[in-house]
Computed example of a mutant assay.
Amino acid sequence: MGRLVNYFPTITAFIAFILSLLCLFAGTQLTVLPGADILTVFPSNKSQDTGIHDFYSIYVMSYCEGDLMSGNRRFMNCSKASLPFAFDPSSVLLEETGNTTSLSNLGWPDTITDDFHSFGMTSRSMGPLYCIGAGVAGLAIVGRLWWTIRRGPRQSVIELVLLLLGFAMLGIASIIATVIAFQFVGLVKDHGRDTGVNAEYGPQFLGMTWAATGLLLGGSITSLVMVLVDRSRSDLTAPADDPGDETKSDQVSVKSSAGPSDAETEKDGNH
C-alpha cells in the first residue's frame, strides 16, 4: 500500500498525459476519436444539394464533416490539423458550395458567424494549453523515473510544481471547453432557431478533459502531502547538538580561567 501511495502522483500524471493527448488529437483523423468533439453544428435542412454536409464536428485542432444516416453520424472527412485552430464556418460553408451563393441564401445566419468569430481567440488558446499540460505531465513522469533510479526522495518539490502547473493548464483548458460547449451551443441554438441551424456539445470530450484535470489535482494534493511529511520527518531525525560537547567545552574554559595547578605551585616554590 505504501508503494502505491508513493507512485500515485506518477500514475495520475501518466493517465492525465494520455487523456490530454486524446483531447488534443481527437478528430485530426477519421480513426482518432471522431466522436469526441467539443461541439457539433448542424446547418439548416433547407439547403439541400448545395454541397454542405449535414454536420460539422469541431475539435481542438481540426474539424470533421459528414452526413446523417438514419439519425447516426457518418464521418466523411477531417480537416488538416493546425495549432492554434478555430473553426470558421463562413469560409468552410462557402468553400463547400464552390462560392456560388451567399450564406444567407443557405439559411445560415450572420449572427452565428459573428459568434464563431467572437469565440475564435478563446478557441485558439485551447491547443497550446493542452500541449503545455501534457508536456509538464510527461516531465513529471520522467522526473519520477529519474529519482527512482537515483534512489531519491519519494516526492520532490520539482515534481509538485510540475503537477500543479499541469493541473492549472488543463483546468483552464477544461473551463474554456466547457464554456464553449454550453454557452456557445446555447447561442447557436438561439440565433439559428428561425433558420433551422442547431448545435450540441460533446459529452465524451468534456469527460476526458475533466478527468485529466481531476487526476492531476489528486496527484498534486498527494504529492504536496508527501513532501510536507518527508520534510517534517527530516526535521525530527536531524542530529541534535551533543550536550556532552557543551560540558566538555565548559570544563576546558574553567580550566583555562583557573590559576596554576598545585603541582606547578610546588615546583615554583622549590625554585
Rank of each mutant, 00 (worst) to 15 (best):
S257Y: 09
G259I: 01
L139T: 02
V60S: 05
A134H: 11
S125D: 00
D114W: 00
A238R: 15
S118H: 15
I221S: 06
G66N: 13
I158G: 11
A177D: 09
M76H: 05
L93H: 03
E95I: 00
V229E: 14
I149S: 13
C23T: 03
V142K: 07
L22N: 00
S102W: 00
G202E: 05
P43T: 10
T10G: 07
M226N: 14
E264L: 14
L187K: 15
F87M: 04
D67P: 05
D110R: 13
D242K: 03
T113H: 15
C78D: 09
T40F: 01
D114K: 09
H53F: 14
V32W: 13
G135I: 02
G196L: 05
F14E: 03
L215Q: 13
L217W: 09
Y63W: 13
V161R: 07
F119C: 03
P9F: 09
C78E: 06
I176V: 15
L30H: 12
A36G: 02
I175S: 13
Y56V: 09
Y63T: 08
L30Y: 03
I18T: 07
T10C: 11
D268E: 11
F87L: 04
D242E: 08
M1D: 13
C23Y: 04
G143E: 13
S123C: 02
G219L: 01
L39S: 02
H271W: 07
I15M: 04
T213E: 01
I141R: 08
M226R: 14
S249G: 02
W108S: 04
L228C: 11
G138I: 02
V227L: 08
L103A: 10
C23A: 13
D88L: 02
S123D: 02
R124S: 04
F55C: 09
D230P: 09
E96T: 02
T195L: 07
N6W: 00
F14G: 10
T222L: 12
L139N: 03
G244M: 09
L164D: 04
G186I: 11
H271M: 06
R151N: 12
Y7M: 03
E65L: 12
M61W: 01
H53D: 13
S125P: 03
P34I: 04
S123F: 03
A177P: 01
M226F: 11
D242H: 04
Y63H: 15
A181F: 01
S253H: 03
I18F: 07
L216W: 08
I180T: 14
M69A: 06
A26K: 06
Q48G: 05
A258E: 14
V254P: 01
Y59C: 07
T213M: 05
A86D: 10
N6T: 09
N198W: 13
G51Y: 01
I141S: 08
M1K: 15
T101P: 10
I132C: 12
S62V: 08
